[in-house]
Amino acid sequence: MFWETQLVTILFVFFAKAVIAKSAVPALFAFGDSILDTGNNNNLLAITKCNYPPYGRDFQGGIPTGRCCNGKVPTDLIARSLGIKETVPAYLSSNLSPHDLVTGVCFASAGSGIDDLTATSQGVLPVPAQLGMFRDYIGKVTALVGQQQAADIISNSVYLVSVGNNDIAITYTRLATTLPFPLYAARLIDTTSKFFKNLYGLGARKVWVFSTVPLGCLPGGRTVAGGPLRICAFLENQLAQIFNAQLSSAVNSIRATLPNYDIKFIDVYTPLLNIINNPQPAGFIDVSEACCGTGAYGISGICTLLSVCSNPSTYVFWDFAHPTERAYQFVVSSILHSHTNTNTNTNNVSNSSVNSSSLLS
């Protein structure tokens, strides 16, 4: 038994070395909210859950994995485009393999945010708890492949972070309206900056910080404040823009302060808004309704088998707050084009590959 354990350890040390040698990006990790979550809420007593049909109807096998989408989310699409793996499992998954650990996992939790109130009000994982899970991960991967190989994986991997969406759309809009938004946003940015510094302290060096999406253009935002014509809600978009500007500035400041910290602000707001404002060239038909939930076929905003449309690929949004996989593909393609010199197939980014080394310059 001892020798079998030793053999497994040796094999995975060699495997880890092969992973690092094969790619400039051996693994991918994700933190934050439902934009990136691949199923961490499944076994939580959480308000926000996406582990039931028709979620996942276009995922491999048609399985509802906890992704708030009809298929893959940006975590998966970016991992595939970087040549790492097809999908990124949730860290709280009950069947993680050693290969999963070595090539990256997701710590994000749908409904979470920077403000602790955002997560606790929904029973999901606060960002500090996600960082604690990453510390736990470091211990596991170190035991698996050794300290040096674990350090190489951690320092050479890409980290995705998506925060702010729920803090603005849920906590501020509904619970913190007495506080001027610029002050609330500044508090969020201060907490976020500490998170990025803690991530750096744990060895991360390549971090992609997602902006918020255009919150006022989500089907839920249109329903609440878009009027009878369901236009994009101006105020929520304005709040998102204010937050994004502060977030971008904070990221630039952190990058200038900490040595060898390749932390990037990733504009998700603009490419998604471009699709919403000009959907026809990309083949989208409906931008204001959701395929499932608050869309034309929706029942009280709840995504059910009875409320789903027949062709999600023509919708920008899957449910009241989340894009379809196809919309995500266009957004991810735009992100990769902005940060690489590689031509990516816009219509099928999940099946494309990019030069990951240029992405890290």
Rank of each mutant, 00 (worst) to 15 (best):
A129K: 14
M133V: 00
I138T: 14
L96G: 01
T75W: 12
L125H: 02
K85N: 07
F134V: 00
F134H: 04
G71A: 11
S155P: 01
L175S: 09
K72T: 06
V105P: 07
D116H: 11
I84N: 10
L160N: 08
I168W: 03
V158K: 02
F134P: 00
D136Y: 06
T75N: 12
P98E: 06
S81F: 00
A90V: 10
K140N: 13
T118K: 03
I170T: 06
A79V: 10
Y159M: 10
V145T: 01
K72S: 14
E86Y: 09
S157W: 02
L125Q: 06
T65Y: 15
L175H: 14
Y172R: 12
S112D: 07
P98Y: 05
N156C: 03
I168M: 08
L144G: 03
S112C: 08
V163A: 15
F107K: 01
I63F: 15
L92W: 00
M133K: 02
V124H: 07
L160A: 10
Q130T: 05
S109W: 02
T173R: 13
Q130G: 06
P64Y: 04
T75V: 10
S157C: 15
H99L: 14
Y159L: 13
Q122D: 00
S109F: 04
V102E: 01
I154L: 14
I154F: 04
T118C: 09
N165T: 15
L82S: 05
A169M: 13
V127C: 12
H99F: 14
L77Y: 00
T118R: 04
S97G: 02
T120L: 13
T142N: 12
